[in-house]
Design a protein around this nucleic acid. Structure first.
Length: 204
DNA sequence: CCACGGATTGGCT
DNA sequence: GCCAATCCGTGGA
């Protein structure tokens, strides 16, 4: 019998490290949302880092506000924000108290509950192969697929509603680093990381 | 295939 | 009042 892979929840010390280290190491980890007995999960395949101390695109560049205050706490909490009057996006808070650093999760590859994600996104069955990848290849799409919203703001990722499972590190050669997308300020920082050739990455 | 613009809430100046 | 860490539909090549 094949050995069962033990999936261990990431602990506080994973998140309290430096922003870009956490961002890169988030690739391949499993994002899980548990609501009663319903589990939805997916492998993280694309992320972007944000650091308000030097990065004008970060929500924390203007300092601490009610909206972003969770990111000034210790790493390992969930920062969910609402934007464009329509979409939620989710982030992992990193670092130590007072920093205002977080990693935006931009794309995941569905693992569990794909049928629920399809229903949440399209309210119907898939009509073609393309839609399969259109399920979670963007930050707003992830939140719609997983039903993540303002109720999940500030959740502790070492808790049991939303958390991350450990997984083997992605090899250096399989990580692509580029400028971030969809922003207008600090556009040249190479703080976007994604897994090479993964079909769920939001753009090539 | 690509480019463009509308939707629509809420945070901040 | 401005505008956003997005998504989707439309229209043209």
């Amino acid at each position: 019998m094949a050995p069962k892979i033990i999936q261990k929840k990431l602990e506080r010390n994973f998140y309290t490290r430096e922003l870009l280290t956490v961002a890169r190491n988030l690739l391949g980890k499993i994002l899980v949302k548990k609501d009663k007995d319903i589990i939805i999960s997916g492998k993280i395949v694309e992320v972007e880092a944000y650091d308000g101390s030097i990065d004008e695109a970060a929500h924390t560049f203007i300092g601490k506000t009610k909206r972003n205050e969770i990111t000034f706490g210790i790493g390992g909490f969930f920062y969910v924000y609402f934007t464009y009057g329509a979409h939620f996006c989710c982030n992992v808070v990193t670092g130590k108290i007072g920093q205002g650093t977080a990693v935006l999760i931009r794309a995941i590859e569905p693992i569990k509950g794909e049928d629920i994600m399809i229903k949440n996104r399209f309210k119907r069955d898939l009509v073609n192969e393309k839609e399969k990848y259109n399920l979670t290849n963007g930050p707003g799409k992830i939140c719609q697929a997983m039903s993540i919203n303002k109720n999940h703001y500030g959740l502790d990722l070492t808790g049991n509603k939303v958390y991350l499972l450990d997984a083997p590190e992605i090899k250096e050669d399989d990580i692509i680093i580029t400028k971030r997308i969809g922003i207008k300020k600090s556009v040249d920082l190479p703080w976007r990381f994604y897994i090479k050739d993964n079909p769920y990455v939001s753009k090539r």
